[in-house]
């Protein structure tokens, strides 16, 4: 039995998990959730595996008809979430009943949100991952974004016993200007000191020509000492290429696995979620840190995920009728 019917697909809604690894050597991008932090927390709220396939929503969310009783959670960008017109909290799991309409609106801050369902979304698993890679037409739902009238199924038919809310301390806020930490290299030696300084001391704007594959930036142009082309080598999400026109390109989850432009720096893994929440027009400043520092930040991020699990607040939902009036009540266990 299907769980949802898509009434409106939203702007660009795809099924993602934590990525497709092991086939990069054959030219297959990893794909996967752009904001892994929000993605993982959405699954944690439902007691799913952290890697369970969920919907990645971009800027404008979908409207879904609910076909069976389930629980869901929405995390990531700030956007209105409503069930039959009644507002629901984000970063909180809640129940849906057969016949409900779940509608997710447009972002007010951030760029990408995640909708996870109890049991995870069922998807085409190719090369070990459910992630949709639209350019390669693979994974997710026929390798494409959702469209009207799609039916969405669940992988496992399970229902959580309880509903949870993430402690506010761990809910990120998204700004229009972000500081992104980078590690210089692998080809920082293609650039002289002045150009590296210019790169680190400038503010760049994300252009309209930006998507899951990469963000093209506008701002001071960076010049290589001699040439911008290298012998094509490997690329990781977060790599910052400087092509001959001098405008940086940040490679992201759907980026090709190899490339021929010099890479001045690489964004640290822990800041990719922050990048994922930036839209065209938003601005970036880069800050160079060491590999050791970055790895410490990564360790801290994992600890905060553990803390989120340890500090989840239990919530419960009731429909009550008092003197003939209906009330939608959310109770939180404060013990």
């Amino acid at each position: 039995m299907a769980t949802f019917r898509v009434l409106q697909p939203g702007l660009f809604t795809t099924i993602q998990d934590l990525g497709r690894y092991g086939y990069e050597s054959q030219g297959v991008p990893t794909s996967g959730a752009m904001d892994e932090f929000a993605f993982r927390v959405a699954n944690i709220l439902l007691g799913n595996e952290e890697n369970a396939p969920a919907l990645e929503i971009t800027v404008l969310g979908p409207t879904l008809e609910v076909l069976e009783d389930v629980a869901v959670a929405v995390t990531g960008a700030q956007l209105p979430v409503e069930v039959n017109g009644k507002r629901r909290m984000v970063w909180t799991s809640f129940p849906l009943k057969k016949g409900d309409v779940l509608s997710i609106g447009a972002v007010s801050s951030g760029c990408r949100a995640y909708l996870a369902v109890s049991g995870g979304f069922k998807a085409e698993v190719i090369m070990g991952s459910a992630s949709t890679y639209t350019r390669g037409k693979l994974g997710g739902l026929e390798g494409r974004p959702l469209k009207k009238e799609d039916l969405l199924f669940r992988e496992l038919e399970k229902k959580p016993a309880k509903f949870y809310r993430v402690d506010e301390r761990y809910v990120p806020t998204y700004e229009n200007v972000a500081e992104i930490r980078v590690i210089l290299g692998p080809q920082d030696y293609y650039f002289d000191e002045d150009n590296i300084k210019l790169f680190l001391n400038s503010t760049y704007t994300i252009t309209k020509d930006s998507d899951r594959m990469g963000y093209r930036l506008e701002g001071p142009q960076i010049r290589a000492k001699k040439k911008h082309d290298i012998i094509t080598d490997g690329i990781v999400p977060g790599a910052i290429q400087i092509p001959a026109n001098g405008s940086p390109i940040i490679m992201l989850k759907d980026a090709q696995t190899t490339g021929g432009y010099a890479k001045i720096a690489t964004c640290i893994w822990s800041d990719l979620p922050k990048l994922a929440q930036l839209k065209p027009g938003d601005r970036i400043r880069f800050k160079a840190i060491s590999v050791e520092e970055a790895q410490k930040v990564l360790g801290d991020l994992e600890k905060s995920i553990e803390q989120i699990k340890a500090t989840l607040k239990i919530v419960d939902y009731f429909d009550i009728t008092v003197n003939g009036k209906h009330y939608d009540v959310v109770l939180e266990n404060i013990n």
Partner: peptide, 22 residues
């Protein structure tokens, strides 16, 4: 070690720094 990308003249090795260090 997560995965590797061999290219013309270099090998890119992805790793989990929480399990193995540089």
């Amino acid at each position: 070690i997560i995965s590797m990308i061999p290219t013309y003249r270099s090998l890119l090795i992805k790793y989990n720094p929480l399990k193995i260090d540089f």
